[in-house]
Amino acid sequence: MEFLLENILNLIGFLVGLAIGIMALIGFRNTGSPTLFRLTIAFFSISLGFFVIWMGYMVEDFVMKSGSIERWIQTLGIAIQTVGYFFIAFSHSIKSFFPKSRYFRSIGIFPLFLVSDVQLEHIFRSVSFILLAYGAIETMLSYVENKNKGAISVAVGLALLALGEFLGWYSFVFPESILYSASMIIKIGGLIALFIPVSKVPLTKIKFDEGLE
């Protein structure tokens, strides 16, 4: 069951990330906007991260048949995804990650201390959680300002991905529980929510204007 869910999640993640990345790339080529450039890097990284893990499962399933994916492949894929989440958060201005208040600063780095003596994968998951939660909050705040309904879908998508990352990370505490499967289902829901506003972009009206710098 977990194996099937992992395959579905990583395949959807790869396709959704690729679709949004291509859309952002077309936008960057049309407008030269640095924001769209950062979104392009972000979603191509997310897509590549899911692809690496998906390929890891495929190779394990059809070639190696050892029963479990190589740990370093999973870690590498999650690390690449974390880079993508960083660029989403960076687009919202990364300075909010370093608040002046000493109290908030200690809260901000608390999850890192919790996992600093375990595997890299745990660190990447916790960092991803922080970046995704930040992105979700900022996107929701932008909805409050602009009342753009697409922002709700993106905020919900990022929040579900954050929750999925948190549960995925927390499932190491209870390895035999339903937590990991739940985290994957939640992340699939998050990816679908992310894709909803992008699916409404009128592709037929988009045209490259290569001359404009």
Binding site: A24, L36, V154
Partner: peptide
């Protein structure tokens, strides 16, 4: 005509960025 097409693309990607809570 090119300007009209560019403006259409500009609005499309402004909305795209708005969906992510960003401005282009």
């Amino acid at each position: 005509q090119s300007g009209r097409e560019f403006l259409q693309a500009y609005y499309t990607f402004t909305n795209f960025a708005d969906d992510f809570g960003l401005s282009i």
